[in-house]
Design a binder for these strands. Structure first.
Lengths: 233, 233
DNA sequence: AATTACTTTTAGATAAGGCTAAAAATATAT
DNA sequence: ATATATTTTTAGCCTTATCTAAAAGTAATT
């Protein structure tokens, strides 16, 4: 029961960002991690599953709020305020994912949808206490790094499984695709974060790999190998 | 990043109730606990801190969705579907309050605002697991009962402290006013749920009470005594 | 029974966030 | 360099949830 005029809390949160604005900021943040250029309207539209015209509108609003720099036809870039804001949303998302897996027995393929909602809850105390309650985790259940309070993100060194050569060994440290289909597939194959993987053979024909996990041999497609991050041993 | 067309989850939640609709349902639910008659437009408007005209609009929408019965100028009543839906929101609110106090070290005067947001998170699994994680609590931090999954609410027998007579003893089981001001006042006086309270004297003049808690004597106003629930011993 | 007061509803407006279709700008290809 | 294709923006419309002001209904009072 939130009222903009009489409720101080509601006033404070109304002065921040709407759920929709937060989703745009997060999308731009993720896109900036891959490309260094200005993020195009179409790229955002695709990511957020909306229309380019809606993106243009929102991007103007975000520009007014000083979280992005926007030049017509030239795409957008997050300002430092924008980066910090977006990182904070990602921080919340990933901390909630840890909570769901560690405390509520969710599996790693079930957490995304719920975290997508929980990330918008406004309460600094909540997220700080949650962080402490979870013992200050550094990665989410998919191996993605959790930004710290200042929005700094410590990326660990990782390579795609597909880049390993024959007889090399790696430890699974993350996934590139975190769709529930892919994650469930990994579960079925017994592949989890921390799992040791040895490349037994590489097939030139289709780039599929023959790998060893837990003393078992397994053949995986190139698509799989390009969505699994490992740390070389 | 929710999209109505391609995301099954979003589709499901969009088929349910908006945050605003949920707030109206909750308000009507709370009002029905006190009055048995149809709930008036003005009563809802006051509770939700909005205008009567807005209430009329929303009430029509809720009526279309079969969660209230609405007759022009005659107020509304929740249908059984409406009751169940509202009870579920209250259940979520109170479970989250328990979580915040028990696990994240919030005090009982800080939980309401945050629970007000968390109660709108859509995920049956989340709330069931949270319930189990908290060991199936029956009351929230203010002593209010938590509805079960079917929306049934077990009200405990309780009376206002103001109804106790001289030399009677009660155990504090809840509060009527759960504003942070009142709760902080109680903290300051050392009054918590479970606290034993003995009425030493009643002052006819202003209906104030002299009470004993933890071997200490204390004078409290009638206003306080009318906002504290106790169970007679 | 008539007047006044209060409550509720209606009508019309606004703001946020989305859409489609058309126009404008930029990029690509001949 | 011109024509074509693609991207982006604009313009106008829709829905949700609000609001204000006016109209209509109900209740209270003389």
């Amino acid at each position: 029961m939130i009222n903009k005029k009489n409720n101080i809390f509601a006033y404070l949160i109304s002065n921040m960002f709407t759920q929709s604005e937060e989703n745009y900021l997060k999308a731009i943040y993720h896109l900036e991690l891959v490309s260094t250029k200005g993020i195009s309207t179409n790229a955002i539209a695709k990511k957020i599953e909306t229309k380019a015209s809606s993106v243009t509108d929102m991007v103007k609003k975000l520009s007014d709020k000083k979280v992005v720099v926007y030049k017509k036809y030239k795409g957008v870039k997050l300002t430092s305020l924008g980066k910090k804001t977006a990182a904070n949303i990602v921080r919340k998302h990933r901390l909630w994912e840890v909570f769901l897996v560690e405390k509520l027995n969710f599996s790693w393929d079930e957490v995304h949808e719920v975290a997508e909602q929980l990330e918008h809850i406004k309460s600094p105390k909540l997220i700080n206490q949650l962080d402490a309650f979870l013992d200050f985790p550094k990665q989410d259940p998919h191996g993605d790094p959790i930004p710290d309070k200042e929005g700094n993100l410590k990326t660990i060194e990782k390579s795609l499984l597909a880049t390993l050569h024959k007889n090399e060994i790696g430890i699974c440290v993350g996934v590139n695709d975190s769709s529930s289909e892919f994650l469930q597939f990994l579960d079925k194959q017994g592949i989890t974060i921390g799992q040791e993987i040895k490349v037994l053979d590489k097939e030139d024909f289709d780039n599929s790999l023959s790998i060893e996990i837990d003393q078992k041999e397994l053949s995986i497609s190139s698509k799989i190998a390009n969505n699994l991050y490992i740390q070389k041993k």
